[in-house]
Every structure is written in C-alpha cells, then in structure tokens.
Design a protein around this nucleic acid. Structure first.
Lengths: 222, 222
DNA sequence: TTCGCGTTTACGGGAACCCGTATTTCAGTA
DNA sequence: TACTGAAATACGGGTTCCCGTAAACGCGAA
C-alpha cells in the first residue's frame, strides 16, 4: 500500500473521515492533511526536496473562500500546476461535482487516475479507488462511469453560458444583442441569440427563458 | 454528555468523520448513523417505542437522490415532521447551506438548537455546538451569525414562494392564475399576480421575471 | 465562377410581459 | 344601512418574448 499520502480537502468533517479511513482501513503510514491548495503545493515541493515525496494525492475540486489570499484557489488549478511541472504523482479526485463536462476534462486531459464522487458510498469508493490506483489501475465511481459513457453529453460553450448569465442579470435579448455587437462578438443578432436560446431550451427542457435560467442555476452553470 | 445520538448524513465521508468525532472526542456512547431521512424517522420512532429515545439529532439538509423511493427527501422535511409530532428532541443542523432565508427559517420557526456550517472548521464548530446544546444553550457558526444579524428581511410569504416556484417551472403568469383559481387560492387574478411579482421585483432588485427567479435561486428561496 | 450547405441575419404575427389606471369586492365601522 | 379604505380584479397600450419562414452571407468543392 501507499506509504505517504496527501489529502487536500477544505471541509474538516470530510478530511477527518478520509484520513482515518486511510490509516485504519488501508494501513497508510503517513497521511498529511491540508485545507488549502497553496499549502498542498508547497508540501509536495518540500517533500520532493527532502527526498521523501508523496506517493499519492487525493484532492477535492471546489474550495470555500476565506480570509486567506490564495494563488491556487481550486483543485483544478492545483492539478494543472502539478501536471505542467511534470511531477509523477498519481492523483485521485474526490468531489461532489458530477457535471459530465468537468469529469471528462480531468480524466482525459489531466491524467487523473481516479474520479470518486462524494455520494452515499463515497468513502467506500475512495477506498477501492486507492487500492486500484496502487495496482496501477484506474477507477471511476459508478455514476461517473454512467455519466461519461451516457448520451447526456451536450457541448455547452462559453458563449451559451454568457447568454444565460446576461439573462439572469436582467438583460433583455435585445440588449444582449446590442452588447455583443458592441463587443464585436459574433453571432450578435437578435435572431441568432434567439436560436441559440431555443437550442438551450431544448437541451434543458425549458418552456421559456425563466425556466431556462432556473434550470441552468440548478445545474450550476451560472 | 449525550448518551445516544442519531446522525443523518448521506455522504459517508462526512458521516464517518462526524461519528468518530462524537465517539472519540466527546465520548458519546452510542452513535447511530443513517444515510436516509426516511430511515432516520423510523429509527427515532423505534427508539421511542423501545423506551430508549435519542438524546440528540444531527442532520444535514440536502440529500442526493438515488434509486430508493423516499417519502422524506430532505432534512427540512424530516425536521418539520419531527416538530409537528411534538417530539422533544434537540436538533443540530450541519449543512453547507448558507442562504440567509433558510437559516432564519430553521432557527426561528423550527426550534432548531444549533446551525453549524460545513466549512473549514465545521467539525470543530459541531463539537462546540454539541457541547453548547448539552448545556441547554444554542449555537450558530460565526458566518451564520453574521448572516442572520446582518440584514433584517422582508416578509416573504409562502404564497410568494409558490409564485416563484411556478415561474421557475416554466408556467406563464396566465397559467399560474388559472392554476390558483382552480385550487381556490386567492388572490388568483392575473392582475394580482402581476402586482405581487412587481413587489418581489422591487425587493430583489430585478428588472424582469428572469432575473427575479435567478435572484430567488441565489437566495435559496426556491 | 458556380454550386451546395451551413451559419448568421431579417422580418412578421401572435403570445406573454410590463406598467399605469380604473373599477369592483369586501371586511370593518359609524 | 351606508361609508370607507384596502385588497382584488379588470383593462389597455407598449415592449419583449416566442416561433416560423425567408433572405443574405461565408466557405469549401466541383
């Protein structure tokens, strides 16, 4: 089993649960727990410098903000920073995030070994994930597997998000059209915006703009 | 200290963290953990029947849905059910939810003893909350305290919430009018609904229904 | 160049919205 | 009973949304 594991998790309830599991159930000798991504990166560097690197990183994706000023503010940034430095370190993501888009982004692009969904069996899944990764295999929580393999994968572009954001901020379609054309963004015509919104209404099963924005909010898109 | 505590929490990572804390740090003899609100209610009833009731309930608010059909699908419903049955049982909420409205609703209306925010110091806060409640006192996480003391809120009735809910579900104002008059709810006229929504737009600083629903979502009203 | 195809834009009509004003309803009171 | 004020309803107009159709544009391939 892994000897030295770093756990990055802001919620102490969760961190406590994970670290005791690692020690008690899996017999990991050294579990280091931190609540900040900045700190995590420093710890990784320091351990490398002392010739006692971590064998595994388990990290959350979203972190609550507090008073501390941060340079790395999310698990996403942390992982990207590690990968650009070419550090050979298996990574397991443990998150509540279950949007297909983010999941595939990580598992494919960033060479993440496992993606565990914090659900009812999150801890059990994590245990299995650690075991699998130790044997050089990958691991995805059931629901994640279904998400990435299923058909419910729509490409929502930043453009769509911006439209939804404008709407939720009280702009009319007409105002949005003017805004975009002033910015030089294309497409900007009222017609195109309507068409785009119609596609979104279709995807998110909404009757009108009100429901569309409500559903987008529920999905965490805006 | 409390002898018998029921913890209702769907995420096993969190549940594991809380229950070990209760046992190890606070010396609670019997910690029962469940991942479903339905099950929690049954356990409370059963314990009462066996003349060995729980001394304390610690519950989350939001629960992920899975295959199981549920009659009680949220911490909110669980608490309301307990309170309507007049069960004398101190309740501590432990949630990530920090919308002002939901917080005041619980602490004022439902006689909840403590509201702990699942943040960086969630577990520490929870420990203090349990101690405080055991001494007959209340407890609110710092951030929660700031939220509830900050602004005093406008009187938003259930009627207003229902309007917002209908809107967010794609109904037009006209449809809502018909729905309400069929239900025998008054006021139900289009005019009255418009007037009510105008008041809400004023309160929540919204230009139109889209922004209104978006803002209401942000505040956790719907 | 010309064709074909997809994207962007334009336009029109009906529904839903927004907003002001006017009328009706109804409970409380003299 | 009649009066009164607040709430509920009714109505009209201007704006915005919604949805269909059609024209203009852009860009590769023949």
């Amino acid at each position: 089993m892994f000897k030295k594991v770093l756990v990055v998790e802001d919620l102490d309830t969760v961190g406590y649960g994970i670290s005791t599991m690692l020690e008690k159930d899996l017999g990991v000798k050294e579990v280091v727990l931190t609540q900040y991504c900045d700190d995590a990166y420093l710890k990784i560097q320091a351990a490398l410098f002392k010739n006692a690197p971590f064998d595994l990183l388990i990290t959350d994706l979203s972190f609550q903000r507090d008073h501390r000023p941060l340079t790395i503010d999310s698990g996403k940034s942390l992982i990207e920073k590690i990968r650009t430095k070419n550090l050979e370190l298996p990574i397991i993501i443990c998150s509540v995030e279950e949007k297909p888009d983010t999941v595939t982004r990580f598992t494919k692009k960033n060479k993440v070994s496992a993606y565990v969904l914090k659900g009812r069996d999150g801890l059990k899944d994590l245990k299995n994930a650690v075991k699998a990764v130790f044997q050089g295999k990958g691991f995805l929580s059931d629901k994640i597997e279904r998400l990435t393999h299923g058909k419910n994968f729509f490409e929502i572009e930043d453009y769509d998000i911006s439209l939804l954001a404008y709407l939720s901020n009280g702009f009319t379609q007409d105002q949005i059209s003017n805004l975009l054309s002033n910015k030089g963004v294309s497409p900007s015509s009222l017609s195109s915006i309507e068409k785009r919104l119609n596609r979104l209404k279709d995807v998110f099963q909404a009757n009108n703009n009100v429901q569309l924005v409500a559903n987008a909010k529920d999905l965490g898109l805006i």
